Simulated scan of single mutants.
Amino acid sequence: MSTALSGDRTAPASTAHRSFWILLWALYTTQFIGASFLSTGLTGILRDGGADLSTLGLLQLLGLVWPLKFL
Rank of each mutant, 00 (worst) to 15 (best):
M1V: 09
S2N: 01
A4P: 00
L5I: 11
L5V: 07
S6Y: 12
S6V: 02
G7H: 10
G7V: 04
G7C: 03
D8E: 12
R9D: 02
R9A: 06
T10E: 07
T10M: 03
A11I: 01
A11G: 01
A13P: 01
A13K: 02
A13D: 06
A13N: 05
S14T: 05
S14A: 13
S14Q: 06
T15V: 11
T15N: 08
A16R: 09
A16I: 06
H17M: 10
H17G: 15
H17C: 08
R18Y: 02
S19N: 10
S19H: 09
S19I: 06
F20G: 09
W21D: 14
I22G: 07
I22H: 10
L23E: 13
L23H: 12
L23N: 09
L24P: 14
W25F: 15
W25G: 10
W25K: 10
A26G: 11
L27N: 05
L27F: 15
Y28G: 08
Y28T: 14
Y28N: 09
T29Q: 06
T30N: 05
T30C: 11
T30H: 05
T30S: 11
Q31G: 08
Q31V: 14
F32E: 07
F32N: 04
F32P: 02
I33M: 10
A35T: 08
A35V: 12
A35S: 09
S36M: 01
S36Q: 00
S36A: 13
S36V: 02
F37I: 04
F37D: 04
S39R: 00
S39Q: 03
S39H: 01
T40Q: 03
T40H: 05
T40E: 05
T40Y: 07
G41S: 15
G41F: 13
G41L: 12
G41P: 00
L42I: 00
L42T: 02
L42A: 13
L42Q: 11
T43K: 04
T43C: 01
T43R: 09
G44K: 14
G44A: 07
I45W: 14
I45P: 00
I45L: 15
L46I: 07
L46C: 11
R47I: 05
G49L: 05
G49R: 07
G49N: 08
G50C: 06
G50W: 03
G50K: 11
A51V: 14
A51K: 04
D52P: 10
L53V: 04
L53D: 15
S54H: 07
S54R: 08
S54Q: 08
S54F: 10
L56P: 01
L56A: 04
G57N: 10
G57M: 08
L58M: 08
L58P: 00
L58R: 13
L59H: 05
Q60D: 04
Q60E: 03
Q60T: 09
Q60M: 00
L61R: 02
L61S: 02
L61G: 03
L61Q: 02
L62N: 05
L62G: 11
L64K: 00
L64A: 15
V65L: 14
V65R: 03
W66H: 06
W66G: 02
P67C: 14
P67N: 12
P67I: 13
P67S: 12
L68E: 03
L68F: 15
L68C: 12
L68V: 11
K69H: 09
K69G: 07
F70V: 15
L71Q: 08
